[in-house]
């Protein structure tokens, strides 16, 4: 029992391994300029590398072409604009709009009145036209009658 408590050991019980020996450092740190010169020398050495030969392929490899089997049908362009609930109009424009609407309403009322008058005129014209037609027909009948009478008298 309580073995796990016994396993705890103090840090002093461990023995550290010996430290490795440090490498020899140059006494003088190389300057930045000398490091840059070294880097440029190395890059010049790399420039001397001959270029790679072109790939040794006799015939070009045909790359198969892939096309999608099932193409989605293209959707028709949506002509319907998104529903716009309201717009904002300047107060001045709104007042002009209201005044114009009032003017149109008054004009239409006037037109309706005129149409009523015009309708009455048309009815009166129809009555007069009927009367005129009757008069012409009667006159024609009378002419025929007179013509017949005169013709008979002439006989």
């Amino acid at each position: 029992m309580f073995d796990f408590l016994r396993r705890k050991r103090r840090a002093d019980d461990f023995e550290l391994p010996p430290l490795p020996e440090l490498p020899d450092f140059p006494e003088e740190i190389p300057s930045l300029k000398s490091l840059e010169q070294e880097a440029s020398r190395r890059s010049e050495e790399q420039d001397d590398i001959p270029p790679m030969p072109p790939p040794m392929l006799e015939t070009p490899i045909a790359v198969p072409k892939f096309a999608p089997k099932d193409v989605m049908p293209e959707e028709p362009a949506r002509t319907q604009m998104p529903r716009q609930k309201g717009v904002f109009i300047k107060v001045d424009s709104f007042r002009t709009l209201i005044a114009d609407l009032d003017g149109i309403r008054a004009d239409l009322r006037e037109y309706q009145k005129k149409i009523g008058e015009f309708e009455m005129t048309r009815k009166e014209e129809e009555v007069l036209f009927g009367r005129w037609q009757k008069s012409v027909n009667d006159a024609q009948k009378k002419i025929i009658s007179v013509d017949r009478t005169l013709f008979e008298v002439g006989k």
């Binding site: 609930k85 309201g86 717009v87 904002f88 109009i89 300047k90 709104f94 037109y111």
Partner: peptide
């Protein structure tokens, strides 16, 4: 400062104006 008035159902108003224009043209 410009003051604006919100006009609801702008499309209905525009359609009505269009209809009035057509009727006036017929008249």
């Amino acid at each position: 400062v410009p003051v604006y008035v919100k006009v609801n159902d702008y499309r209905e108003v525009a359609a009505a104006i269009d209809s009035i224009k057509n009727r006036l043209s017929e008249a």
